[in-house]
């Protein structure tokens, strides 16, 4: 690796560059935050910092059943999908990285294919299938396609992590008297934990952010998730501009993601660098 220039000038240069990137990424978010704190009257005044501060928008969205219900749907669907995808993905990735079985290349190929498949082209068939099978507008109706698309992601990320764990450890565990299951549970799983958390976060974000499936495969509050509910937002009355409420809702739904990432941040970083350090 080339040695990095760490002089004060280089620091300044990198600092500026970082600042530009951060500002570029954060301005839209901050704009939404600003909008959510404005009163209806000042919504369109073009000021970045609101002239009149209000929390009415937040009060409003939590008073409407529509939003609260959607939030519950979102959390439930995303968590269940993440759990199932990570558990299945862990097993599949372990098999792919450790075992030689017939059809392994095919399995990896197919999962890659699924990951590349344009989701839009599946929307109409899925819509028809789900209406026929009665899955339309239910939680499983969203969880199933989410798992399908999250699995390749999970398998790829996890098998990369498993490949970093020396196989000798597993052999050693077996020699020490562990069964295959014990070797996995007591030796491999703890070492793969950072990978599992990283994968869980990625999958959760994917499910949480999805709009396409959510809007196509739901029709009522029963299973509508937040991104879709947002698009159906109207103001308190028909004639009210819902921009403030939508902004407030947008801010609210970013919070779980931020919490999730902050909570596991240490784990993610450890996971991303775990291959660099010799155990």
């Amino acid at each position: 690796m080339a040695t990095l220039d760490t002089g004060p000038r280089a620091k300044l240069k990198w600092g500026l560059l970082d600042a530009v990137v951060v500002v570029f990424a954060l301005i839209p978010v901050l704009w939404v935050v600003s909008l959510s704190l404005k009163t209806t009257a000042t919504l369109t005044d073009g000021n970045f910092i609101p002239r009149e501060w209000t929390l009415d928008n937040y009060r409003l969205i939590f008073q409407t059943d529509q939003f609260v219900r959607a939030l519950i749907n979102s959390i439930g669907i995303a968590l269940i999908s993440t759990l199932i995808a990570v558990v299945l993905g862990t097993m599949a990735a372990y098999a792919i990285s450790r075992l030689d079985f017939p059809g392994k290349a095919l399995l990896v190929g197919v999962s890659l294919l699924i990951a590349m498949f344009p989701q839009v082209s599946l929307v109409s068939p899925l819509f028809n299938i789900e209406r026929q099978t009665g899955l339309f507008d239910t939680w499983p109706g969203l969880i199933l396609p989410y798992i399908t698309f999250a699995l390749p992601l999970a398998i790829y990320t996890l098998s990369a992590f498993f490949k970093q764990i020396p196989w000798d450890l597993e052999k050693a565990a077996k020699m020490d008297g562990a069964t295959q299951a014990e070797a996995f549970r007591k030796v491999i799983a703890p070492l793969a934990a950072p990978g599992v958390f990283t994968t869980a976060i990625l999958v959760f974000i994917f499910c949480w952010n999805d709009f396409l499936f959510a809007i196509s495969l739901t029709s009522t509050e029963q299973s509508r998730t937040v991104p879709v509910a947002l698009s159906f937002f109207t103001g308190a009355s028909q004639f009210e501009d819902p921009t403030g409420a939508i902004s407030a809702a947008a801010v609210v739904i970013t919070i779980p993601i931020i919490l999730f990432v902050l909570f596991f941040q240490k784990r993610i970083v450890a996971g991303l660098t775990s291959g660099a350090v010799k155990g």
């Binding site: 000798d168 052999k171 050693a172 020490d176 069964t179």
Partner: peptide, 29 residues
């Protein structure tokens, strides 16, 4: 299975469990 043969093995890479202390490593079997 290896566990039923009652033999111990030392590996070239040592294969120590990195998440366990020396004590836990030795106590594992």
């Amino acid at each position: 299975a290896p566990k039923d043969r009652d033999i111990a093995m030392v590996f070239q890479s040592y294969a120590l469990y990195p998440n366990m202390t020396v004590r836990e490593n030795m106590a594992f079997p």
